[in-house]
Amino acid sequence: MKKMRVLCAAGLLGLGAVSAAAQILIGQTAAITGAVAANMQETITGAQLAIDHANAQGGIHGEQIEIVRLDDGFDVKRAGENARVLIEEKKVVALFLSRGTPHTQAIIPWLDKYGVALIGPSTGAMVLHKPVQKHVFNVRSTYQREAEKAVTHLHTVGIERIAVVHASDSFGKDGLDGATTGFTKAKKEPVVVVPADRDKPDYAAIVGALTKANPQAVLWIGSGSAVVDGIKALRAAGSAAQVVTLSNNASTGFIKQLGEASRGVIVTQVFPSERATAQPLVKEATVLAQAKGQTELSPATLEGFAAGKVLVEALRRAGPKPTRAKVLAALEGIRGFDLGGGMEISYSPQDHSGIDFADLAIISDGRFKR
């Protein structure tokens, strides 16, 4: 493969496989910087394992995949504007691996206007599943499924007093809806539900409300450093409540940011354990990572790898010189595509949901364990 080059201009970061001979332009707007940057970097690393592997084998029908990445800093308006630039100016044939629920919602009008597919958004928002978004092709499970499973698990192990903290945006409401389903099925109620501003959470008020309710467990629905700082504030207030958060925080970076406060935190997962190397998807990603000198996968890396595999498969099926319409048609035609170990992806005009898998992991000794 020819020597890589990096695109770097005002507001533009090219951090992936970019070749002078590249023919297939794929766009990505994501939080390269900001509150969820650590998680996003790991997800990108996983995606590049699949993309670089395809390029090293001669590309797709002889053409290299070029990822053009724009940093949105986890800002909704920037995400929408980046999508416009990628589609109108960069002429990408598809978008890939966006991050954030309101951020992805800001992208959708541009997808719909120009008939561009978005593959593998790193969000489990139900709004991207039902009703079906014509141009959005999910790979991972929904936040509602995760939040419901978390509440069900806590009740199953005898925890009765559960509080919920949720970001005050579409992502937080989505997770809260899933948690509510879990409470309803268990015929229980949360001891308190506390909204948290997405950008500037008032930790004194949040922790005050939690301390007053005295929960045995807290389901914290938020992103990156907002959750990290919240858990640290909760521990500083003397609370020993079990903390559970969702898979958008399933990264090694999240654990490192938490430090000592990470011990015992439960994080929902949307793929098999990253150390279950008997599982073909995990084994393939591990082999490719080790060839690049990466010693260990994280859940976020595995999510990116799965999304990358779907992107590569869609481009293969689209044929030589893929257009936006050909990529869209190729995705609609995917039935029973095995990511490895029976984890199959199927799409149709009526269903763009991808995989329905949810599990739990607990942080111990600086690692996710199941």
Rank of each mutant, 00 (worst) to 15 (best):
E303Y: 02
F271Q: 05
G59A: 07
V193P: 00
F171P: 03
L25G: 06
H53E: 14
E148G: 13
Q64K: 09
S298T: 02
E313D: 04
L360D: 09
E81M: 11
K232L: 08
Q48E: 08
G259H: 11
H129Y: 12
G14V: 01
P320C: 00
I87M: 08
V139F: 03
T101N: 04
K113H: 11
T33P: 09
K2T: 14
I355H: 12
I51M: 03
A358V: 13
P201Q: 11
Q105T: 07
V76Y: 09
T142K: 03
S251C: 05
Q290N: 14
G124E: 10
V36R: 06
L70N: 06
M1Y: 05
G58N: 02
D199F: 11
A83C: 09
G34P: 07
A10L: 01
E88C: 09
I108W: 10
S353M: 01
R367E: 15
S19P: 00
G319P: 03
K113Q: 13
I108Q: 10
A186T: 02
K292A: 05
V93D: 01
E284Y: 06
K149A: 15
P195V: 07
L258M: 13
C8P: 01
G333I: 07
D351H: 14
G115P: 14
A20N: 08
T29D: 05
K309G: 00
Q269L: 00
G58R: 08
T245G: 03
P109A: 04
H129D: 09
P280L: 05
K321Q: 06
V151H: 08
P272I: 10
R84D: 08
I162G: 10
T33W: 05
L328W: 11
R324C: 01
K134Y: 13
P190V: 04
W220I: 06
L128A: 10
D356R: 02
Q28A: 03
G73W: 09
I334Y: 06
A20Y: 06
T295G: 14
L97R: 01
